[in-house]
Simulated scan of single mutants.
Amino acid sequence: MTAPVGVILAGGLSRRMGGGDKGLLDLGDKPLLQHVIDRLGPQVRTMALNANGDANRFANYGLPVIADETTDFAGPLAGVLAGMVWGAAQGADHIVTVAADTPFFPTDLVARLKASLTPDSAIALAATPDPERGMARHPTFGLWPTNLADDLRQALADGTRKVVAWTDRHGTAMAEFPASPFDPFFNVNTPDDLIRAQELLR
């Protein structure tokens, strides 16, 4: 496997936050997105931001901004597809995706996603223990082969929107992470979540 490239998924509509770009909200002394960049950067050889609309709003970050191929906000899978296409153009056989609103994800995310792959798995997703579901998968945190881009494009055209509905068609490994003292994949969806993130940061 060549060194994977990173793709930060920021293409959502942020409805529960009242719209706009959650990643540009301040957490501590810097925006949420900068926390994500700082965590992902050391783990990959280069990064891009998946976002739709005017790319200039992210100009300060110095990252390539890649938009979804479709304009109907098809969810995270559309961002994964955009990342696969961009990653393949960088010569990468895999991309790693993270969410732009999850500032505390593990600093060994990429290494553990890679280590979880088996001969029967094409994709790896992060997971944490859940008292009700056993292991809860975090489908925006994954390791994806770029050679599945055409397959994913067809799945989106056929109406697939749920990440695991597509990943379950392919071999998918789980990279397990501890969920204490808090789930590292905690994401900021609402104003109350942002307050919680401020508390966790302190």
Results as ranks from 00 to 15, higher is better:
residue 202 R to G: 15
residue 22 K to I: 14
residue 163 V to F: 11
residue 147 N to F: 12
residue 168 D to P: 02
residue 131 P to F: 03
residue 72 D to K: 06
residue 169 R to E: 14
residue 202 R to I: 03
residue 5 V to S: 07
residue 24 L to N: 04
residue 45 R to S: 10
residue 155 A to H: 09
residue 45 R to Q: 10
residue 34 Q to R: 15
residue 18 G to T: 03
residue 199 E to D: 14
residue 32 L to Y: 10
residue 197 A to P: 11
residue 49 L to Q: 00
residue 84 M to P: 02
residue 11 G to A: 12
residue 67 A to L: 00
residue 27 L to W: 01
residue 184 P to H: 02
residue 76 P to F: 00
residue 88 A to E: 15
residue 108 D to W: 06
residue 138 H to Q: 13
residue 136 A to T: 10
residue 137 R to T: 14
residue 198 Q to K: 13
residue 153 R to F: 02
residue 66 I to W: 02
residue 113 L to I: 04
residue 179 A to L: 10
residue 160 T to N: 07
residue 23 G to V: 02
residue 175 A to G: 07
residue 181 P to K: 00
residue 148 L to H: 13
residue 65 V to H: 06
residue 74 A to Q: 14
residue 160 T to V: 15
residue 53 G to S: 13
residue 181 P to H: 05
residue 185 F to K: 01
residue 40 L to E: 07
residue 142 G to L: 01
residue 148 L to I: 10
residue 53 G to Y: 08
residue 26 D to A: 13
residue 28 G to N: 09
residue 78 A to W: 06
residue 142 G to Q: 03
residue 139 P to L: 03
residue 106 P to V: 05
residue 173 A to F: 08
residue 24 L to Q: 09
residue 23 G to M: 07
residue 177 F to I: 07
residue 51 A to K: 03
residue 169 R to V: 01
residue 3 A to S: 14
residue 163 V to P: 08
residue 23 G to P: 10
residue 51 A to M: 02
residue 21 D to Q: 12
residue 13 L to T: 15
residue 190 T to Q: 04
residue 151 D to G: 01
residue 96 V to Q: 07
residue 98 V to F: 08
residue 164 V to L: 15
residue 18 G to W: 05
residue 62 G to N: 11
residue 152 L to C: 06
residue 112 R to N: 14
residue 83 G to E: 02
residue 173 A to Y: 09
residue 11 G to V: 04
residue 128 T to L: 09
residue 189 N to R: 14
residue 193 D to N: 13
residue 166 W to T: 04
residue 100 A to Q: 11
residue 99 A to V: 04
residue 113 L to D: 03
residue 115 A to N: 12
residue 196 R to K: 13
residue 7 V to S: 07
